[in-house]
């Protein structure tokens, strides 16, 4: 006899939890769809906090330690809130050859944040990625989901300032 478990209540009235719940329901609350569930949380909230991980663990009937283990293993999952704008500098080989490190240095000098950090006013997060596959546009940067290419450090900083000002 299998016991029917009750699913946990949504943590709050925030509508975004419904999206997360729907994603888990689509996969039949299967434990092996954990990564899908974490993607859903990150798409909805931008990062994974303890509340979200606990909710996912309870819903999928997994230990919280496992959820935390998976969340920390994969680079794409963020455990801290991100800035309003995300600037991902590609550091793949082609971009490296064409000066990705100059971009990172330029942004660090201007905004004072290294890859993985967010500015104090939460306006900008700088991240680095291992090849976004836009090698034809090297050095490539993904700014809020849009790939922009062939920029120098000065042009990139200018572009970022524009985005932040808007």
């Amino acid at each position: 006899m299998t016991l029917q478990r009750t699913r946990p209540d949504l943590p709050s009235n925030d509508k975004r939890w419904k999206l997360v719940n729907a994603a888990m329901r689509r996969n039949g609350y299967a434990g092996h769809a954990l990564i899908e569930a974490l993607h859903a949380v990150q798409d909805a909230f931008g990062f994974l906090d303890e509340e979200a991980m606990t909710f996912v663990a309870d819903s999928l009937d997994l230990p919280l330690s496992k959820v935390y283990g998976v969340a920390t293993f994969y680079h794409l999952f963020m455990l801290k809130p991100q800035g309003r704008h995300a600037c991902v500098v590609c550091t793949g080989t082609a971009c490296y050859i064409k000066g990705a490190s100059a971009l990172i240095e330029g942004v660090q000098e201007r905004f004072g944040v290294a890859p993985g950090e967010t500015t104090a006013d939460k306006s900008l997060s700088v991240l680095s990625a291992r090849c976004v596959g836009a090698c034809g546009l090297a050095p490539a940067v993904v700014l809020d989901g849009n790939v922009i290419g062939r920029l120098g450090p000065a042009q990139l900083c200018e572009r970022l300032e524009q985005e932040i000002a808007e």
Binding site: I35, F73, Y74, H75, L76, F77
Partner: peptide, 8 residues
């Protein structure tokens, strides 16, 4: 489809 999450 299963999505990766950035692990080489």
């Amino acid at each position: 489809i299963r999505l990766g999450a950035g692990a080489f």
